[in-house]
Design a protein around this nucleic acid. Structure first.
Lengths: 242, 242
DNA sequence: TTATTATTGTAACATATTGATACAATAATA
DNA sequence: TATTATTGTATCAATATGTTACAATAATAA
C-alpha cells in the first residue's frame, strides 16, 4: 500500500474524498494528423471511460484534476483547465461500477459510495503525445490513446464530455494558443496547420494561415529541417511567449 | 414550514443537500447606463454576499441555480449558465457564517455543515432589471441591486466570482446575444449601444455599431419613440431570433 | 551534373470587414 | 420658423482576410 494514497480510496464509504463530486479529464494529444484521446478500459467488462477521480477533502479542485491527469500520463507539468460541470441527474448510472465489482467476484455493496449520484467537473488537458506514458489506475486496468474519430462507446455521459471538450478546444484554440501544448517543442508550419485543421475540422488556406501565425509574433524560426522528401525543406519553429 | 422546502435546509447536518457543494449566482441587470448586481446582506453583521444555495440530492445542478436565481428575483423563465467552478481551499472561510449565528444569539455548533469547505459553481443570470423583485432568503435578510462599479466588500471569494462573471459576460456578449437578456423587450439603438459600452468598458463608434447590429439580422424595427428631447426621435427595436 | 518533382515561403492582388467622417432628416423647443 | 441635439446612413479610409501565383530548394532520377 503506497503511503501517499489513502487506503480507503475505493472503499465502500469513500472517506477522504468530497462526496458526490468527481473530476473527469479529457486528455488530448496530436499524432499523425489525428487528435487522440486518452481512455481507460476495464478489461473484464470491456467498458471504456475517461480518466477520472475524486477530490480530497483538503485538495484544491484544480489540483485534483492535475493529480488525475498526471497519474494517467506521467506528466508533472500540466495544468488541466476546467471547461464545464456535468451535473444532471440523467448522468447518474451506477451500472458500470456494479459490473466492475461483479466481475471481480465480490458481491457489490448496494450502498457503495460509487453508486451515488455524482457531479463531475470536466477538465481539458492538452499534452505532447510523445511525452505521455499511459498509465492505468486502480479501477481501470488499461489506459491507451484512441483516435478521436474512432472512440468506442463510453460509460455514463463520458462521450458527451469528450464532445464538449472538443468544442471547448475549438473555441480556445485561437485565443489561448492552446495548439502549442499539443505539439512537440519544435514543429513545422505544416504540422501546426495540420493540427489546426484537425481540431477545427476544416481545411485552411496555407498562405493565410502562415501569415496569421507569423503575424502573432510568437513563433521563433530555428533551423532547416531535412524533410526527407524530394522538395524544399521547411523551417522548424518554436513557440515563444511574448 | 413550507411543504416544498426541506425543514433541515439550514440544520447542522445539511441533510437533503449534496455536501461541500454550492452554487453562487451572479445576477446582472442593466439600468440607467449602469450594470447592476444582485447582492444579499445580513443586516446584523452588515456582510454582503452573492445569492447562493445548495444542490438537492436529486436535483440537476442547473436546476439548483435556476431555483436560487428564481427565488431571489421572482423570475421563473430564466436559465442561469455556469461559467466557472471555484474550488480552491483558499476560498474556505467559515467566519461569516459563524458571525451570522453568533449575531442570532445562538452558540454556533462547530461541526455545522456550513463551516465545511465548499466548492461552488458560479452561474451567470442576465435579467431584465425592471422585471426583478429582489427577495431575501433564509440566511440573508436583505436583497438589493448594487452598481457593479460600486459593490461593497463581499464574503469569501464572492468579489472574485463577480469579477469572473463580468469577464465571462464580456466574452459571450457578442457570440451569444447575451445583451438582449439585459434589456426590456423594446429598446433603442442608443440603449443597446450603451449596454455594450458598459459591459465592455469602452466607447464604441455609433455608425459601426449600428451597422453591425442591423447586419446580424436579429433586430426588428417597430415604431417611432418620442424621446422627449429636442431632436430626431429614434426607432424602437425588438429582438427576433432567426 | 543536370533535369524533375513536390513542397515551401511569400509576394501580389482581390475581397471583405471594420474604422472614421460627414451630412441630411427630424422632433422638440425657442 | 429658426435653433438645437440626436438619429440614420452614405461614403471613404484603413485593416484584415481570401486567393492566386511564383520563385526557391531539397531530394531523386536521368
Amino acid at each position: 500500500m503506497k503511503p501517499d494514497t489513502p487506503h480507503n480510496e475505493t472503499d465502500a464509504a469513500g472517506n477522504g474524498f468530497i462526496p458526490n463530486l468527481a473530476v473527469d479529464v479529457v486528455v488530448f494529444g496530436f499524432h499523425d494528423t489525428e487528435l487522440k484521446v486518452l481512455l481507460m478500459q476495464y478489461s473484464k467488462t470491456g467498458l471504456y471511460a475517461l480518466p477520472g477521480g475524486f477530490v480530497r477533502l483538503n485538495e484544491n479542485l484544480d489540483d485534483a484534476a492535475k493529480r488525475v491527469a498526471g497519474e494517467r500520463t506521467g506528466l508533472r507539468d500540466i495544468s488541466p483547465e476546467q471547461f464545464r460541470v456535468f451535473g444532471d441527474m440523467a448522468r447518474h448510472d451506477p451500472t458500470p461500477f456494479i459490473s466492475f465489482m461483479a466481475a471481480d467476484g465480490g458481491k457489490p455493496d448496494p450502498n457503495h459510495w460509487l453508486f451515488q449520484r455524482f457531479i463531475s467537473v470536466g477538465y481539458l488537458a492538452l499534452v505532447d503525445f510523445t511525452k505521455v506514458t499511459p498509465t492505468p489506475d486502480k479501477i481501470f486496468d488499461s489506459c491507451n490513446w484512441y483516435n478521436l474519430t474512432d472512440i468506442p462507446p463510453l460509460i455514463q455521459d463520458h462521450s458527451a464530455i469528450v464532445a464538449a471538450g472538443l468544442q471547448w478546444l475549438q473555441v480556445i484554440l485561437d485565443s489561448k494558443l492552446a495548439g502549442f501544448n499539443l505539439l512537440p517543442a519544435e514543429f513545422t508550419m505544416a504540422e501546426l496547420q495540420s493540427l489546426y485543421e484537425t481540431v477545427l475540422g476544416k481545411k485552411l488556406l496555407r498562405p493565410a494561415f502562415q501569415r496569421k501565425m507569423l503575424g502573432m509574433g510568437i513563433l521563433e524560426r530555428i533551423a532547416k529541417k531535412y524533410s526527407g522528401g524530394a522538395h524544399k525543406a521547411p523551417y522548424l519553429y518554436r513557440f515563444v511567449s511574448k
